[in-house]
């Protein structure tokens, strides 16, 4: 998993010291070395202010306030990404309804692997300027310049092709449904764009695949969606 992310500074907030210790150890074992913790709302806010973390993992239930108000206060001075840890009863729609713009929420209890995946996903999404390049079989994609470098040849990407590849790259190795892709390309309620999506996929393949009729990077999962395989 992208090692450049391991330099990021993480702030963990939970009132349960043992849980805090466990999350810290999960992250430490994964390679994160810059971890600070807080167990109260007040502590969390001052640490966020002085320590300028790159990501805050925030428990919703704190002894001196709730995570939602902590986030609102943090937002006053920084746009640091926030992942909520909830015990589910705080209702997902409450999180959504608050419109706080949390980057993700993780429901307790969680498996360490799942937790790490979500943390990495948020970091990757929020600090993508750190990683504007992906390596594919036979080519390199530079998102900051919207270019594909294939066998010494530089091929430009259109805006839609860029969005398509970027959406797939964010979910690298995982299937993205046609609906999600259409939504990323054409916005809400994208019905009847399947043919256009096919056309865009075809053109992207011509740019990134060595043999576009036998794709190895941008794979079709019949009826469901597409998947991008990157070279590790």
């Amino acid at each position: 998993m992208g090692s450049y992310l391991h330099n990021k500074k993480l702030l963990l907030v939970d009132d349960e010291p043992e849980l805090l210790k466990m999350i810290a150890s999960i992250l430490y074992n994964d390679g994160f070395e810059n971890i600070v913790t807080a167990s109260t709302a007040a502590d969390a806010i001052s640490t966020a202010k002085n320590g300028s973390p790159d990501l805050v993992v925030l428990d919703v239930m704190l002894p001196d306030g709730d995570g939602f108000s902590v986030m609102r206060e943090i937002r006053e001075f920084t746009n640091v990404p926030v992942i909520f840890l909830t015990a589910k009863d705080e209702a997902e729609d409450k999180l959504a309804g608050l419109g706080l713009g949390a980057d993700d929420y993780i429901v307790k209890p969680f498996l360490p692997l799942e937790f790490l995946l979500r943390v990495h996903a948020v970091l990757r999404r929020c600090y993508k300027e750190d990683s504007p390049m992906i390596q594919l079989e036979g080519c390199t994609v530079d998102f900051s310049r919207a270019e594909v470098n294939k066998a010494g040849e530089v091929i430009p990407l259109t805006a839609k092709e860029h969005t398509l590849l970027e959406t797939l790259a964010r979910n690298e190795g995982r299937i993205v449904t046609v609906d999600a892709l259409c939504e990323a390309l054409w916005g809400d309620n994208p019905f009847g764009y399947e043919n256009s999506l096919n056309a865009h996929v075809r053109r992207v393949r011509e740019k990134i695949e060595t043999n576009p009729s036998k794709p190895v990077s941008l794979i079709t999962i019949k009826g469901l969606g597409y998947k991008l395989n990157t070279r590790k």
């Binding site: 466990m22 999350i23 307790k108 209890p109 969680f110 498996l111 360490p112």
Partner: peptide
């Protein structure tokens, strides 16, 4: 139940 269960699953 959720918080203690997190600990069990995590460790």
């Amino acid at each position: 139940i959720r918080t203690p269960l997190s600990m069990i699953m995590g460790y």
